[in-house]
Design a protein around this nucleic acid. Sequence first.
DNA 1: ATTTCTGCAAACGATTTGCATGTTA
DNA 2: TAACATGCAAATCGTTTGCAGAAAT
Lengths: 152, 152
Amino acid sequence: MRKFIAEVSEKLRSHEHKLTSRRECILCILLENKDKHLSAEEVYNLVKQKSPDMGLATVYRTLELFCEFNIIHAMDFGDGRKRYEFGDDSGDGHHHHHLICEKCNKIIEVNEDLLEELENRITNDYQFSISNHHLKIFGICKECMAKSNNKQ
Amino acid sequence: MRKFIAEVSEKLRSHEHKLTSRRECILCILLENKDKHLSAEEVYNLVKQKSPDMGLATVYRTLELFCEFNIIHAMDFGDGRKRYEFGDDSGDGHHHHHLICEKCNKIIEVNEDLLEELENRITNDYQFSISNHHLKIFGICKECMAKSNNKQ
DNA sequence: ATTTCTGCAAACGATTTGCATGTTA
DNA sequence: TAACATGCAAATCGTTTGCAGAAAT
């Protein structure tokens, strides 16, 4: 993780930006919550515990900066705010998919890319040159299914 | 189309709502632009040509009403506003997908449901009970590819 | 000293809502 | 005359921006 932070610092530095202590603090929060898909407001609330005088605008500006440098990217899970996760969204787009539980709002990542065959079909049938895709699958997760079965 | 409007009217009427002339006007605009995935503001601008004294709030309220009755549903194409299309989004979720051209912003609908096999795999591997999915595929459409090839 | 960074408050844009008036059954 | 519908303006909510002061090179 030390190494990752140093890498980020280098990336920023090579374009006349600094990894200031506030920015590093935000990066840490993101690292500590890799699995959570935090929103800006959520990052802000977590960051305030370590750094109570940080402003919300700084969080927004930092998240935008990290996006520009492809350290994180924004996703929309349909709740009206951007949520962030690590990873480059600009490349050939073969990243993971998301299962969204409609009961507990948990987000499960599916890391295999399961759409290659489908993409080939679309490329052929529509002569559409694919650069990226977003697949969101809504439903009920294993745990919530178990809970609702117990209640019955 | 007459028939469809009458059906909508019935649907609303059966739950103490009326298909008023303003609402019918909005419905017509939507019908005339089935392929366009209009936003609320765009509906408003089109509607004002026929009904200049209509308020934006009425458009929003009507679109929301139509959504409640599953006459239309809202989609997010990543441009920060809701866009609407006909069809029921609440059922078993086996509706179409969207190809989004990053050059001309055209939206191409893919009406086959191409994810059944994938869904089966996810249901098995994750014990996740799927109710719906949204697949957006970004890239360059046939026409834009042709254009950029000509220019070279 | 110049550039970047930051907090604060104000601005923003899409959407929602309160309220008083209009319309319809 | 109830209940629903509407226009208008104000409110809301996530996000962005202007600005003046602080920090870093």
